[in-house]
């Protein structure tokens, strides 16, 4: 929640940024000298979430929760899918302590995967949404969130350097 509060001042800046995007020729509206210029909000074209867990049913329930939350917050959902087979981490040992090499046992740890995609999030939306679903992550589930941020070309790379 703190994170969300921190992003609150950015909310005004998005509109300024939107106007720049629509009419690129107009300069960004200059704010008064006392107030520092609002930091433009970040833009994320894609948020890709990978879930790992031991129980596929838990992953499924969690995916349902995350997509429902995205629906309520008005976030565009992408493809949500899971591979059919789990990853098996197998270890083969001798069944007996000493000899009898023909008789072995196998222990295995299964890791089930599940993927979710969300598109077109502003920085404050992404922080809010990601923190909300991260806080409600059930036990025994690991998450990887890849964020694709959109940026403009830096000023010094727009024109070829003058002096060579």
């Amino acid at each position: 929640m703190l994170q969300a509060l921190k992003t609150l001042p950015w909310t005004q800046s998005v509109r300024a940024l939107a106007s720049v995007a629509t009419s690129a020729t107009t300069a960004p509206n200059a704010s008064s000298a006392t107030i520092p210029a609002p930091e433009p909000d970040k833009l994320y074209s894609k948020l890709e979430i990978e879930l790992r867990g031991v129980d596929p049913a838990v992953l499924k329930s969690y995916t349902w929760f995350a997509t429902t939350a995205a629906d309520h917050l008005g976030i565009e959902k992408g493809k949500c899918w899971s591979p059919r087979k789990a990853h098996h981490d197998r270890m083969t040992l001798l069944k007996s302590v000493h000899i009898y090499k023909k008789h072995r046992v196998q222990y295995e740890v299964r890791t089930h995967f599940r993927y979710m995609n969300f598109h077109k999030l502003t920085g404050s939306t992404l922080d809010t949404f990601l923190e909300y679903i991260e806080r409600n992550l059930p036990e025994g589930v690991a998450m990887e969130a890849s964020k694709t941020e959109l940026q403009q070309i830096p000023e010094h790379l727009r024109q070829p350097p003058e002096e060579v």
Binding site: R52, G53, V54, D55, V109, R110
Partner: peptide, 18 residues
């Protein structure tokens, strides 16, 4: 385990690349 009864420890350390 995983079929009729479930795990007694729930953590992410046993998963792949943890």
């Amino acid at each position: 385990i995983g079929h009729r009864k479930s795990w007694n420890s729930w953590n992410t350390s046993t998963l792949k690349d943890s």
